[in-house]
Amino acid sequence: MAKEAETFVIKIDGSRDATWQGEVTWAEEKSEKHFRSALELIKYIDGALIQAASDKK
C-alpha cells in the first residue's frame, strides 16, 4: 500500500533572530499560515500531517 503525500509550499520572506520567517501553504487544504520561526513552521507541518492521517482513517 502506497503512502499518500501532502504538499507544502514554503516561502521564506527573510531571516531574523537566527531563524526563518515566511509563509507556508498546505496545497491539499488550500490553507495558508504565516510563521515567525523554523520551529513554528515544523509544528504547523507536523500538525497538518497528523490531521491528514486521521482524516484518511
Rank of each mutant, 00 (worst) to 15 (best):
Y44M: 03
D17Y: 07
F35S: 01
K33A: 13
I42Q: 15
K57L: 15
V9L: 11
T7P: 10
D13P: 00
V24N: 02
V24W: 01
T19A: 03
I50C: 03
E29G: 01
Q21N: 04
A52Q: 13
K56G: 06
T25R: 04
K57I: 06
I10T: 03
Y44N: 01
K33E: 15
I50F: 05
E4P: 10
Y44K: 00
E29A: 11
R16Q: 15
R16M: 09
H34K: 10
F8E: 11
D55P: 03
A2E: 11
G22Y: 11
I42W: 08
T19I: 01
A53Q: 13
V9K: 06
T25I: 05
E28D: 08
S37E: 09
K3P: 15
S15A: 15
I45P: 05
T25Y: 02
G14H: 11
A27T: 10
G22D: 12
T19K: 01
V9M: 06
E6A: 07
A2M: 06
A27P: 04
R16F: 08
E32V: 10
S31L: 14
H34I: 06
L49C: 12
K33P: 12
I10Q: 02
E32Q: 11
I42D: 12
L41I: 03
G22I: 02
E4L: 08
L39A: 10
D46Y: 02
W20H: 08
V9D: 07
K30W: 13
K11Y: 12
A52L: 08
D55F: 07
G22N: 04
V9S: 14
G22C: 03
E6F: 10
E32I: 05
E28C: 00
D17G: 05
D46N: 05
S37H: 08
E29V: 02
A52P: 13
H34G: 08
A38H: 13
V24D: 01
W26E: 05
S15E: 15
D13W: 11
S31Q: 14
F8V: 00
G22P: 13
G47P: 01
A5I: 02
K56D: 14
I12Q: 09
W20D: 08
E6K: 05
A48H: 10
I42Y: 07
E23T: 10
K57F: 04
E40C: 01
A5H: 11
A53F: 09
